[in-house]
Design a binder for these strands. Structure first.
Lengths: 213, 213
DNA sequence: TATTATACATACATGTACGTATGTAAATAG
DNA sequence: CTATTTACATACGTACATGTATGTATAATA
């Protein structure tokens, strides 16, 4: 078989990831074999083992390709918590990021794979600790956000920022988990995301920013 | 090998479920083989295939053994939403049920398996639709609860009960998911469950029940 | 232009996991 | 007390899935 050019190789790299995504969502990660991924991408297993070490590495590559921009946006949120309307800015940033999971199809797919098609066990795999680190980043960023909000006096509760971060992250996790879930009776974040987020954020943040007075 | 008495058989049934639980949590459902379960329970695969059709049937049996009591308690909650303090009763019932997941080890284990060690894909398996039905029960019960609370005039929002149910279920799901998660930085529901639940319930329910005035 | 590294395809070896079929000793039914 | 069913253990066949080793035509390189 003919050797491909560098751009061709990158194209097959993405085709493999796309094929993997489709199969993971359709039939699950555990039940998807590397042969199936290769066949779905019109290749052989040789291509997969050239680009990735194993199935877990495929998932990590998927995260790096599609979810890193969410992580970056999440980090940049911190700088937006500033006068004159820190609470409102935080509110907008949170909504924007939660909705991006629904509006960005590729991002939504990885989030769905990570939330619905992965096992988290006591025996830590490399993939698991990879994802745990990402989660840790999210949590510490969120905690820092609450520290900043507290410093600006726009919090309605006196709970420690760590617990506020946990609770909001739990709520967001639940919302996204539901909206990306297969089957019926799921949340439509596109329609109701703003209302549902406001419902909880109203309990955390002051109605009007002090700095805006 | 000697045939066991009826009580002996039931004992091995439970031993198999216990062994499966341990292995599922330790190394995951997909990576746990039926031979391993049998070995962990000091039996052979013959015992498993006698009591269960396959691995998925083991999980369903686990649910029926340990999670049905939660489902029942959840249904009975509806009757507790009554004057003179419907909102307070609802609050107490929700807390009781969420905390039971932490306090009842066997219940917590199945919830953890279902939340962290199961795949939910587009191709519906029997196990998946089994669990979807259970979820549907929870959701409709919760929705009925909000209809009742609304009828008693103790809701602070005018959002439809369906959305209120979705949002509270999302939050609860997120809390339990975090508290049952392996690794660090998880919520300790035993310690903070009440506070964290109140944080959200305060946004939904009136401060003091009208009927109590 | 000769060489080398690349981007895969193909071939091979191994190890399991599953479902089923069959064996069997004792409990239970009649 | 005999016959039958129960509650498993054992044996069997099959099907893959994985990882690696090797082959190879062609870009890239010098």
């Amino acid at each position: 078989m003919a050797r491909k050019t560098k751009e061709d190789a990158e194209r097959t790299y993405h085709q493999l990831l796309d094929a993997a995504t489709r199969l993971f969502i359709r039939q699950g990660v555990a039940k998807t074999t590397l042969s199936e991924i290769a066949k779905e991408a019109q290749m052989t297993r040789g291509a997969i083992y050239w680009h990735f070490d194993n199935k877990d590495a495929v998932i990590m590559a998927l995260w790096n390709r599609n979810a890193n921009r969410l992580q970056q946006a999440f980090n940049e949120m911190l700088s937006e918590i500033a006068p004159p309307t820190p609470a409102e800015n935080f509110r907008v940033a949170i909504k924007r990021m939660v909705l991006s999971v629904v509006q960005d199809p590729e991002l939504g797919q990885i989030m769905r794979i990570v939330m619905h098609n992965m096992e988290f066990t006591d025996e830590q795999t490399e993939l698991q600790s990879f994802l745990m680190n990402k989660k840790e980043e999210f949590y510490s960023t969120m905690e820092n956000a609450f520290v900043a909000l507290d410093g600006m006096g726009v919090l309605r509760t006196n709970l420690p920022p760590e617990k506020l971060a946990s609770s909001l992250m739990s709520y967001i996790h639940g919302l996204i988990h539901s909206s990306l879930s297969p089957g019926m009776r799921n949340i439509d974040l596109q329609k109701d995301g703003e209302i549902l987020l406001d419902l909880f954020l109203d309990a955390l943040l002051v109605e009007y920013d002090r700095s805006a007075e």
